[in-house]
Design a protein around this nucleic acid. Structure first.
Length: 403
DNA sequence: ATTCCACAGGAAACAGTGGTCC
DNA sequence: GGACCACTGTTTCCTGTGGAAT
């Protein structure tokens, strides 16, 4: 071991790194006070919310936009301003922000709302328990709490589309309907943030009309805008002369291709810088961006496979071992692998579901082909490098015996 | 034009788990 | 302690489908 090398690492740890001066500004935790290119959107949200502040009546809003377009950050920024203003003027506004995707189920969304709103801490009688209550009872308790305390609530549901996809619009129906009888004694203003523009179509018409009183679409950033955002961020994050303009341009171009996702662009920049650091390079260049792109892709695929269930792993291996990639062959392979491992095989229906999940994750590609009288089938192909798969499978002691 | 294969995939039901309520 | 609830992962049942073979 080269002791100079270790010294160098510790030296950097003590005196700070030569490339990055502020690592936090390259993470998703860092949200600037004002997001570039989002003035109009901020104004619209503020106008909608001002109704709550001025007239004391509920006002709903739906915000749409692809991932990484700054929707959530802008909403949170504007709400923080509103909170500050209402505090200054002694107006009591309760802000509750929940994420429907991390909450995972509609009941968990209700639980999170109760937690955030304070129902669970303040009012033991109206506590929404982690489980055990019916959906109706949980909703009633939250509404009762709002009524009893005459709260003016601004409820932000991030990734609201995943809530509707999985569990329908029951919760939204209850909340939007409840406002009709609540207004005298408190109310809930709802702000829904959605990645999907078509999500509205899945709503009950009554929910749709009251929820989408106001709508706002966040367009994806253009490559030029991304470049400017990255330049701004690079100034905060890097020491002078530590990153080349060409690297930033490439980073913006890559992210621009992927729906103008600013979060991804910044993440790419961070990983590239870390690679450059490890190489002890003095400047981040295009090569590092390309390497970072590969690394991010590889790491996500590896993690996804590694954290899958045994049966999903067996399906992946069955696909890898398959000559034709046809559903029937893949299932046969899977059955024999299960026998080898002394496992009870799942039904073909379930395997179809697993294959479609893998497809959605981008780990495989599948095309339906018809062989005429010989039936229809899918041609399933692995979409990531077999090395990545093998490494992920090897790390599972149970699977490694098969390799 | 009809038949038929090998599936895809939706809907409903079920089992098991972990929890609350009364 | 039994009734009830939500959730996950799965099975069972069923209908629909494209196109070669008849």
């Amino acid at each position: 071991m080269d002791s100079d090398y270790l010294d160098n690492i510790f030296e950097k740890a003590v005196i700070g790194n030569s490339l990055i001066k502020n690592r936090k500004t390259l993470t998703i935790d860092y949200v600037p006070e004002k997001l570039p290119f989002r003035d109009e959107e901020s104004k619209t949200i503020a106008q909608v919310l001002s109704v709550v502040l001025k007239d004391g009546r509920p006002s709903n809003l739906l915000v749409f936009g692809k991932p990484g377009t700054g929707k959530t950050a802008v909403v949170k920024n504007v709400i923080n301003r509103l909170k500050r203003k209402s505090k200054e003027h002694g107006i009591g506004i309760t802000v509750t922000i929940v994420n429907a995707k991390t909450a995972n189920t509609s009941y968990k969304v209700l639980y999170d709302i109760a937690e955030e709103m304070g129902t669970n801490k303040i009012d033991k009688k109206l506590k929404v328990h982690f489980t055990g209550l019916s959906m109706g009872e949980a909703t009633d308790r939250i509404l009762e709490y709002v009524k009893k305390n005459q709260l003016q609530v601004i409820l932000v549901i991030d990734e609201i589309d995943s809530l509707v996809d999985r569990n329908g619009d029951d919760i939204l129906y209850s909340f939007t309907r409840a406002n009709e009888r609540l207004t005298e004694s408190g109310f809930i203003s709802l702000i829904g943030i959605s990645n999907s523009l078509t999500f509205k179509d899945k709503l009950d018409p009554r929910v749709r009309s009251s929820l989408s009183e106001e709508e706002l679409v966040f367009n994806p950033y253009t490559v030029l805008q991304l470049k400017e955002i990255l330049n701004e961020r690079a100034q905060l994050a890097f020491n002078e002369g530590s990153i080349s303009q060409a690297a930033i341009n490439l980073c913006a171009a890559v992210a621009g291709k992927e729906n103008g996702d600013a979060r991804k662009a910044i993440d790419l920049l961070r990983v590239a810088a870390e690679i450059a650091e490890r190489e002890r390079a003095t400047i981040v260049i295009e090569k590092h961006i390309r390497e970072a792109q590969e690394k991010i892709e590889k790491d996500t695929n590896y993690e996804v496979i590694k954290n899958s269930t045994t049966h999903t792993k067996l399906v992946v291996l069955s696909i890898l071992k398959s000559q034709t990639g046809m559903t029937g062959e893949v299932y046969d392979n899977y059955i024999s692998l299960c026998k080898m491992m002394d496992q009870d095989a799942l039904t073909q229906r379930r395997i179809t579901q697993i294959v479609s999940e893998l497809d959605q994750l981008g780990l495989i590609t599948s095309n339906v082909v018809s062989h005429g009288r010989y039936g229809r089938s899918q041609i399933i192909k692995i979409a990531v490098s077999s090395n990545t798969i093998m490494n992920a499978l090897k790390d599972d002691p149970f699977m490694s015996t098969l390799l």
